[in-house]
């Protein structure tokens, strides 16, 4: 049984649809990478799961965590899940910690809130977790303020803080984007170790295919508020089925053999969410575009553990309006 099941998730901010029928599932202990360009809806998906979207957003569909429906849940119900069973690490370690509170206070309050721990016990556990994310001198760190730590340390503090209450699922939204490359590798290694040790499920949101290939068993590719391809990470990366995935792979810098003079990029821009093209949202940039792509959006079709939403390579499809694709990634 799945730990988290997101089904036909639709999010609108006023008239703008940012998520248009997103469906995926994560099993206990599994890691799923959610990949896409900025604006593709990755972060919106993560925020929607924890009910962190602004109150003005309209959310439809279903977000089931074990047997609990989180969509439309009240604050009290959400607060029992947030930080306790589903934890989240945000993109920017510089601004994601409260600059006015000591690290110890910010970490301890998670356990005080969810486990009813005493302050002393909570601080003890916090120090243990800081040690686990390989932060030196954890006792002293607890008395420090965020600005006294480096960016990489802050991100590890955020990871330690997220893992304190031993959640079942960790959502990490671009956890390493704001960090230097060497620090990135360190943070990812820490994350991966802990995940295996704790049997934690991971939803890793990133635009970096390298990060996904190293850390995720399965991956899903998002484009313009939809999942366009999903499957085993190794499979998808070696045999991309969707032209967008293929194009993404082609933009990766080549490390061996003759290097191209310019890094390849995908021509054109992702569509403005307020003005999506008719049919397949990728069609204006697609090199294999066909007439049907410009009139009908492809559905996400599943073959064994792979799924893909593209007209190319399909049997001629019966036209569907593509509004309600319910196949799970």
């Amino acid at each position: 049984m799945s730990l988290l099941t997101v089904d036909a998730l639709r999010v609108r901010h006023r008239a703008v649809t940012v998520l248009d029928g997103v469906s995926f599932a994560i099993a206990a202990g599994e890691s799923l990478g959610l990949v896409g360009e900025s604006g593709s809806g990755k972060s919106q998906t993560a925020l929607a799961v924890l009910g962190l979207l602004p109150a003005t957003a309209t959310v439809e569909g279903s977000i089931r965590f074990r047997d609990e429906e989180l969509r439309g849940a009240g604050r009290a119900q959400l607060d029992r899940v947030r930080g306790s069973r589903i934890a989240m690490v945000f993109q920017d370690p510089m601004s994601s910690l409260n600059p006015y509170l000591r690290i110890g206070v910010q970490m301890a309050e998670v356990l005080q809130q969810h486990r009813g721990s005493s302050r002393a016990a909570a601080l003890h556990d916090a120090a243990r977790l800081l040690d686990a994310v390989r932060i030196s001198d954890p006792r002293r760190r607890l008395t420090q303020y965020p600005h006294e730590l480096s960016g990489g340390m802050r991100q590890r503090v955020l990871i330690a803080m997220a893992l304190l209450a031993q959640p079942e699922l960790l959502i990490a939204d671009e956890p390493t984007t704001a960090l230097d490359v060497t620090v990135q590798a360190e943070v990812l290694a820490v994350l991966d170790d802990l995940r295996r040790d704790l049997g934690l499920a991971l939803l890793l949101i990133t635009h970096d295919l390298g990060v996904v290939s190293g850390n995720c068993e399965r991956m899903a590719v998002m484009y313009a508020g939809r999942i366009v391809e999903a499957g085993n990470t190794a499979d998808v990366l070696t045999r991309p089925a969707h032209p967008y995935t293929a194009a993404l792979l082609a933009t990766r810098p080549v490390l061996e053999g003759p290097r191209p003079i310019r890094l390849p990029s995908i021509a054109g821009q992702p569509p403005d969410p307020a003005r999506r093209p008719q049919g397949c949202a990728f069609s204006p940039r697609c090199q294999q575009v066909m007439p049907i792509c410009q009139t009908h959006a492809p559905v996400l079709r599943q073959q064994r553990d792979r799924s893909c939403a593209c007209h190319v390579g399909d049997e001629p499809l019966l036209p569907t309006d593509g509004a309600a694709d319910r196949n799970f990634a």
């Binding site: 924890l50 962190l52 604050r75 959400l78 607060d79 029992r80 899940v81 947030r82 930080g83 306790s84 934890a87 989240m88 945000f90 920017d92 601004s95 994601s96 910690l97 409260n98 600059p99 309050e109 998670v110 809130q113 969810h114 955020l158 803080m161």
Partner: peptide, 13 residues
């Protein structure tokens, strides 16, 4: 501020 979002994600009332 982003760190208030972090606090909300921690399940604080």
């Amino acid at each position: 501020a982003p760190w208030i979002r972090t606090a909300r994600a921690k399940g604080l009332p």
